[in-house]
Amino acid sequence: MEQYKAVIIGGSAGSFQVVTRIISSLPKNYSLPVFLCLHRLKHVRSGFVEALSIKSTLPICEPNDKDPIKPGIIYLAPANYHMYIELGNKFSLSTEEPVNHSRPSIDLSFISAAYNYKRKLVGVILSGANKDGAIGLKKVKENGGLTIVQDPNESQVPTMPNACLQVMKVDHIFSTNEIIRFLNKLG
């Protein structure tokens, strides 16, 4: 388990409670950075970090462009930007056109993280109402990383996990509790 150096989680409709449960379960001294790429409703653009922070033991921040990546911090893709994880362990943000109607795009974040961390990355796709994330999770796998989707039977909106299962062989189909247990073992 020590091979893993970062966790990236993508989610959309129906994922907020799951994300909240996951981040509230991580221990204070967690040794990996956690990237959250979540679609948000237009009217909850601000206040989202605050809402998540209440439940989280780890610090949560929306990174600025070119900020360095540090372990033990939960990074939330800022609203209305794409968030890339770059070589040299830093972020880059962009306002390029939305991909699949989404900005942030889960695919773009996952692809860049897969390229940067290769087999040291764990990618997780949660509940959501579109296909964003499927190509990204596939790239994580192709680069040797570990892939997890939330059990579609448990997902409030199973479209996103199902889209992943259609395009690839996912390593684990986990319930929220299993995801929590697994991520806790990593760091």
């Binding site: 600025n64 462009d65 070119k66 943000l93 306002t95």
Partner: peptide, 8 residues
């Protein structure tokens, strides 16, 4: 600057 840009 943009909301998530900073001067380094």
């Amino acid at each position: 600057l943009g909301a998530h840009e900073s001067i380094l």
